Amino acid sequence: MYEYATYEGGTFEDRFKAHGGSKQRIAERAAQLVSDGDSLLLNGGSTMTVFARALRNHKNLTAITNGLTVALELARSQNSTVIVLPGTLEKKKMTTASTDLEAALADVWGQSVFLGVTGINLALGPTMSTPQEAMAYRAFVRAASEVTLLADSTKFEAGSMFGIAPLSKITRIVTDTGIRDVDRKHLDALDIEVITVAADDEAAPGDLDLASEDVMRTAPEV
């Protein structure tokens, strides 16, 4: 039985802080998968904003994103090129949404896609809360050779109706040590690389710093 993620409907700030320690460590570990000069596709949202901040010391990145706060953080990377996809602003996630997104990515190919998701369903794969988001991020998945999900372990217990892609399309998942054995075994059987970091209840309070005042000031409550 899957439960809806309880913080998914909150403000951007609420979602930014939820499971903050795991989110920070997942982002920092995922940033180690990126090399200077890489070309990336990233979606928006709170997890991806923290990930983008973890890329600040990288150089010469080329990134395509629909996340406004993600773009602001990526712009701090030295000599980075940041392309923001057009669309209507979704204030709770600080992302742009457009029915033309698939067409916009039709001629795009990146080395890697990094995605934050609403949930991970062992049958549907990674999921989002709206069909528009799921459709958009399918285009992201088709546009790269590797797909990495950034998701704390609670995302395996939370689900949405709209699948992005089957798990067979996923290269790796960066999560925390709270992942259940049944989920880990299922991913292992599919030959999906699973990278884990300490869960919130294993970390010292000093590890849980999420603050990025510049980003938080750009995210209005709605």
Rank of each mutant, 00 (worst) to 15 (best):
S35E: 15
F16V: 11
A151P: 01
R56N: 11
A134K: 10
F156Q: 09
T118G: 07
S129K: 04
T95M: 10
L105K: 01
A97C: 12
F156D: 08
S129W: 00
L33V: 12
L74V: 11
T6V: 14
L105S: 00
V222E: 08
F12P: 08
L68G: 01
P220W: 05
D38E: 04
F140A: 09
E157V: 12
N57G: 06
T175K: 03
S212N: 10
K169R: 15
A31G: 00
G119N: 02
N43I: 06
T177C: 02
S160N: 08
V50S: 03
D207S: 08
A144M: 08
L68R: 00
D38Q: 07
F51T: 09
E102Q: 08
V70M: 07
Y4I: 14
F140I: 10
T171Y: 02
T6N: 05
E8Q: 13
L105T: 01
D214V: 13
F51L: 12
Q32T: 12
T148P: 02
R25D: 05
A106G: 07
Y7T: 15
E90I: 10
G9T: 13
M48Q: 14
I179A: 00
I83P: 03
T69M: 11
A139V: 04
S160R: 03
V194Q: 03
F51R: 09
A97P: 04
D38I: 05
A71M: 11
N121R: 01
R180H: 05
D209C: 11
A5S: 12
H58L: 13
L149R: 09
T65G: 01
E202Q: 14
G159D: 14
Y7G: 09
E102N: 15
G45F: 00
D100P: 05
F140H: 03
E221F: 03
A75C: 03
L124E: 09
G44K: 06
A219C: 14
L33E: 13
D207A: 11
I26M: 06
E133C: 04
L149I: 15
M128I: 03
D188K: 12
V113I: 09
Q32V: 01
V147G: 00
V194F: 09
Y2F: 12
D200Y: 02
T88K: 11
T99Q: 11
E221N: 04
T130K: 09
P126Y: 03
K59D: 14
T47C: 08
A75K: 02
Y2R: 13
N79C: 10
R29H: 04
F140G: 06
V34M: 00
K93W: 15
T118V: 14
Q111G: 08
T88E: 14
A136V: 00
L61F: 06
T99M: 13
P126S: 10
G163F: 14
S153W: 09
E157S: 15
V113F: 00
L33D: 12
T81P: 02
T11G: 02
R184H: 14
I26S: 12
A30D: 06
S145K: 12
L89P: 15
